[in-house]
Design a protein around this nucleic acid. Structure first.
Length: 147
DNA sequence: GCCAACGTTGGC
DNA sequence: GCCAACGTTGGC
């Protein structure tokens, strides 16, 4: 899962222990949160729009897909008039902090690591903020992050 | 700040 | 249903 560190970084999650992943307004990303992510699933936490961008740690799903309340609040920047309480368009999950890597795994490093070939985030033009990670890739990234 | 990639919107 | 225009993401 991607987050811009100046909006919500791994350090913010570490401090707050837990966060609801609101504000996602992309159907594919929503579908992953709604349909795929289960309690206990581990998540690579990726800093986008960062210098450098890369994976900075691990979080864990601690609540499964439920309606994103920020879509229902007209005062919220993520408000979506198409969404309603009875028929919510947008869903989110809750994450809890697991670990911050000793060493961040930069996008450059991901791209340069042969065993991560094919990992979605390394693909050019890949903008999805929530995307699946193969377990073999997850293990490699975690190992790299351990330093 | 630039711009490629790509999702969404809306006219037709 | 097509597609041009537009907006956003996010690396560089």
């Amino acid at each position: 899962m991607k987050s811009e560190p100046n909006v919500y970084s791994i350090d913010d999650l570490k401090k707050e222990k837990r966060a609801c992943w609101d504000g996602v307004r992309n159907y594919q990303a929503r579908n992953f949160m709604r349909d795929e992510m289960k309690i206990g699933d581990l998540v690579l936490y990726y800093h986008s729009n960062a210098k450098p961008p890369g994976v900075v740690g691990i979080a864990e799903v601690c609540r499964e897909g439920y309606p994103d309340h920020t879509a229902l609040d007209p005062k919220d920047p993520h408000y979506d008039p198409k969404s309603s309480k009875d028929n919510p368009t947008w869903m989110m999950v809750d994450l809890k902090f697991v670990e911050k890597f000793a060493e961040m795994v930069t996008l450059d490093k991901l791209k340069a690591t042969a065993s991560l070939e094919g990992m979605l985030v390394t693909r050019r033009g890949q903008r999805l903020s929530v995307q699946p990670v193969e377990s073999k890739h997850f293990k490699v990234v975690r190992k790299l992050g351990a330093g």
